[in-house]
Design a protein around this nucleic acid. Structure first.
Length: 718
RNA sequence: GCGUCUUUAGCUCAGUGGCAGAGCGUCCCGUUCACAUCGGGAAGGCCGCAGGUUCGAUCCCUGCAAGACGCACCA
């Protein structure tokens, strides 16, 4: 049957994927032949809260290339797919969806009107629906992952494993309950880890406020209702006489008395060299209090969880902190307490990475992971070279972070996630991680002897369970897959989650399994448009990978994402580039069509007849050279170099030179010459298809089956 | 403040211690040919700047400049 004059990806991609999937070869257990060596990659589970975006297409392409290459090299290749419940991320997406739906009904959505169980159930349904949708999208891009092993991050065994890790870490002293000033978002009403905050530059007035004989410079006069002390540097001659003494002052709500403590963190050169200590609303001040607990009072809550001033603020109670600022300053000015105001002070504020709200530091008891011992081992693995990070410079970024690490707050005040398996005594509030608790009853409380408990309402930071994904998804500790495929070979993901995810997987993997979860980390960049602008929905410059795959074919998109993109640097993509690779698929199709027409022409002798003469042809040696170089590039994770080399060979060598040269032979040569020519071209074509298959799996498979009916390129030898 | 990266053709990016590359764009020519989703050809570069190492540097080293990003409790 002659080949279609045009390659129509729309007609064939879905069919081809189905053929792969039905073959069962995505599952390493079903692969043909003896396969002693295994190769495993865990897919970063996409968030089950929306459509795939082009960033997903990047990692699906790169990982698929690795896996297909390994599979074609006779390895037991496993690529384990998953879906992420994505705790807080999904919480936010879900809220937006509910708000939108409520607005459409002319109603108002209020999460507080729903019980925890209702929220959970609705979010569950939402993610399961998205998950199905997402799986179909992953298939469209040609990902050869083993669907029979697919995991969800809330599968019972994952939840159990995560809880177990928490309990073990608690016993080992690596998890503790601590009262800290946390990063609190007054809009989302939850705390965040230090990674989830953004620092933003602001220009605000700096108020110089009189405290009796001393003056303090601050940008937040509204926090003064939470003041419990003043602090100066112990070496500051100007204030030595005040250190350790109390000062009295006329303040906004009447006279106050504050003790002045001496502390090294105070920079004599900044402002007046005197700091007001507000332990409830500033992390640094909280630490000053911790160092001077015997001398000064602890946190006084002047701002609540909604970001409004409390009763401590007297007439200002109920105002949002930012609204109150200038009002408080105004009254102080009237009372002559403000010495001066410097209007243009540039400083950093921490904001919510999701909504941009200025975060309100407030003191809360949360669960923290003690990072230093974990980080030390994670750093050591990279320093010793047991863990390779690509690109190499990422290693210094990784190490820099690990060496300056702070403890990790893993408590989140939302419903969607894995609930923390900790209990508080109903009587005295003492936290307890150990007792066997059924329906709130357990062993007597160690502190007060009570036997009734309430479970911590908080859930884990999603990254706490994600950090355990490689070994939990493989069935640690007893699973067959864990034994066969752990440690995995490569972790391929974006550089933007090096700390969030990669470093933490290394830490918890080492902690729990004693082994690195992967030997190599490959980091890809962010996708940008052709003007180098980061893609975002609000800018309207997003490339929808499914739309592109629809228009130009998944193969074209894949090549466009790989070619010209070096590891760790951002990926620039444009429609022109994608179109270029669509043209390449067409070119390949036409090369094949030309060869196919000639070999099946009535006058053509059987191709095999010319085989003897072909083996000596210089084109074969040249091809072998190209193939070796491409393999070398792939082995070194230089996907872009391999892609370009193969592209260049197929178009500018095979098509432009070899095929053109052979045309003459095919028209005018003897029967033997024609046969040799056919064999040569077919050999080079099939070899090229194999080389190219990991990059452009659909079109190559589609052509291959025409030449080798009944066979499958996916499991051919590379 | 600490750290990382980038700087190469009009644009977006590869690359190499020994004549500087691709895609797109531009210009010219070409469809009875596998392919106009194509072919042939052309123009276009102080490889950011200044030093150093070297027989030789776009590449290695140092400094500088510009830009991007990450980390960070100066109120």
């Amino acid at each position: 049957m002659p080949m279609e004059p045009r390659y129509d990806h729309g007609k064939t991609e879905e069919k081809t994927y189905r053929r792969w999937e039905e073959s069962g070869y995505f599952n390493p257990d079903n692969l043909p032949g003896e396969r002693a060596e295994s190769f495993s990659v865990i897919m970063p589970p996409p968030n089950a809260n929306g459509d795939l975006h082009v960033g997903h297409a990047v990692f699906l392409t790169l990982e698929d290339i690795m896996v297909r290459f390994a599979r074609m090299h006779g390895k037991r290749a496993l690529w384990l797919p998953g879906a992420d419940h994505a705790g807080f991320e999904t919480h936010v997406v879900f809220d937006k969806k509910m708000e939108k739906e409520a607005r459409a009904r002319g109603a108002h959505y209020d999460r507080a009107q729903m019980s925890r169980e209702e929220v959970w159930r609705a979010t569950w349904d939402f993610t399961q629906h998205n998950r199905t949708n997402m799986e179909a999208q992953i298939r469209k891009l040609g990902a050869s992952c083993d669907w029979s092993r697919e995991k969800f991050t809330l599968d019972p065994d994952i939840v159990r494993g995560t809880e177990e890790t928490f309990v073990r870490m608690y016993r080992d002293g690596l998890v503790y309950r601590g009262l800290r000033v946390v990063n609190w978002c007054p809009k989302h009403r939850t705390a965040f880890s230090d990674l989830e905050v953004k620092h933003e530059e602001r220009r605000d007035p700096l108020y110089y406020i009189k405290y009796g004989p001393l003056t303090v410079a601050t940008v937040r006069p509204e926090t003064k209702f939470g003041d419990t002390a003043l602090a100066v540097n112990p070496h500051d001659e100007r204030y030595r006489k005040y250190a350790g003494k109390e000062i009295s002052a006329e303040d906004i709500l009447g006279p106050i008395t504050l003790r002045v403590v001496a502390d090294d963190v105070v920079d004599p050169a900044f402002g007046t060299g005197v700091v007001k200590v507000t332990p409830a609303h500033d992390a640094a001040d909280f630490e000053i209090w911790q160092r001077h607990k015997d001398e000064i009072p602890g946190p006084k809550i002047a701002i609540d969880e909604t970001g409004r001033l409390t009763a401590l603020a007297g007439p200002f109670a109920g105002l949002k902190a930012e609204e109150a600022r200038e009002k408080v300053a105004e009254v102080m000015r009237e009372k002559g307490i403000i010495e001066k105001t410097d209007p243009g002070y540039v400083h950093q504020v921490t904001t919510c990475y999701k909504c941009g709200s200025v975060l309100e530091p407030i003191p809360k008891s949360q669960w923290f992971v003690k990072m230093a011992p974990l980080a030390e081992k994670a750093a050591e693995a990279a320093e010793k070279g047991e863990l390779t990070i690509i690109p190499a410079h990422s290693k210094s970024i990784y190490l820099h972070w690990l060496k300056n690490i702070r403890d990790w707050n893993i408590s989140r005040q939302i419903a969607w996630g894995i609930r923390i398996p900790a209990w508080f005594c109903a009587n005295c509030g003492e936290p307890n991680v150990e007792p066997k608790i059924e329906k709130g009853k357990g062993e007597p409380c160690a502190k007060c002897g009570g036997g009734l408990y309430e479970q911590d309402p908080d859930v884990f930071d999603t990254w706490f369970s994600s950090a355990q994904w490689p070994y939990l998804a493989l069935g640690y500790p007893d699973g067959r897959d864990y034994k066969a495929f752990y440690p995995t070979d490569v972790m391929e993901t974006g550089y933007d989650i090096l700390f969030f995810w990669v470093a933490r997987m290394v830490m918890l993997g080492l902690y729990r399994t004693g082994k690195l979860p992967f030997r190599t980390v490959y980091l890809h960049g962010l996708v940008r448009d052709k003007d180098r602008v980061k893609m975002s929905k609000s800018k309207g410059n997003v490339v929808n990978p499914l739309g592109v795959a629809e228009t130009y074919g998944a193969d074209a998109l894949r090549m466009a994402l790989v070619a010209g993109s070096t590891p760790g640097s951002d990926i620039v993509i444009s429609e022109d580039k994608i179109r270029g690779y669509r043209n390449f698929a067409t070119k390949l199709w036409n090369i094949a069509r030309f060869i196919e027409m000639n070999r099946s022409a009535p006058s053509a002798p059987a191709a095999a007849a010319g085989a003897d003469g072909v083996s000596r042809r210089p084109e074969l040696a040249a091809f072998a050279q190209i193939k070796e170089e491409a393999a070398e590039h792939l082995a070194h994770f230089e996907f872009h170099l391999a892609a370009e080399k193969i592209y260049h060979y197929v178009w500018h060598e095979l098509a432009d030179k070899i095929v053109e040269r052979e045309k003459d032979v095919l028209r005018n040569g003897s029967a033997a010459e024609k046969a040799e020519s056919c064999t040569l071209l077919e050999t080079l074509l099939l070899g090229s298809l194999k080389m190219l298959h990991p990059f452009m799996p659909f079109v190559t498979e589609e052509i291959y089956v025409i030449f080798r009916p009944g066979e499958m390129l996916m499991v051919a030898e590379w």
